[in-house]
């Protein structure tokens, strides 16, 4: 539980701005709102599907602020050519959900 979150503070503040710009309802974004943002990355849809599965930790079909940051973090990693992990690394889990 003392493992630092992979999402750095500067990343988080950048992703929070995007999150807020998408007009979250009850601090949550539906798949309909997140999908076009992730599609903008030009990554293959199967990769984006895996990123969604990793990010929607409670599997409720919505991303909260921390889950959205995980999704964006993985998108940027994939864009840099890094593999999407097949299992949730401890460092990827937001501290609020450990």
């Amino acid at each position: 539980t003392n493992i630092p979150w992979d999402v750095t503070l500067s990343e988080k503040s950048k992703y929070d701005k995007v999150f807020d710009s998408l007009q979250p309802v009850n601090n949550m974004l539906s798949g309909d709102k997140v999908k076009p943002v992730l599609m903008n990355s030009q990554l293959p849809v199967d990769i984006l599907g895996r990123i969604w599965d990793m990010s929607d930790i409670d599997k409720d079909g919505y991303l909260d602020r921390d889950e959205f940051a995980v999704a964006m973090h993985l998108v940027y990693q994939a864009r840099e050519g890094q593999d999407i992990p097949s299992i949730m690394r401890p460092g990827l889990v937001p501290p609020s959900k450990r």
């Binding site: 798949g31 079909g61 919505y62």
Partner: peptide
């Protein structure tokens, strides 16, 4: 929150 009607929670499937 209402779950999506498709049954899948993944919008990319």
């Amino acid at each position: 929150q209402v779950p999506p009607p498709s049954g899948s929670t993944n919008p990319f499937l």
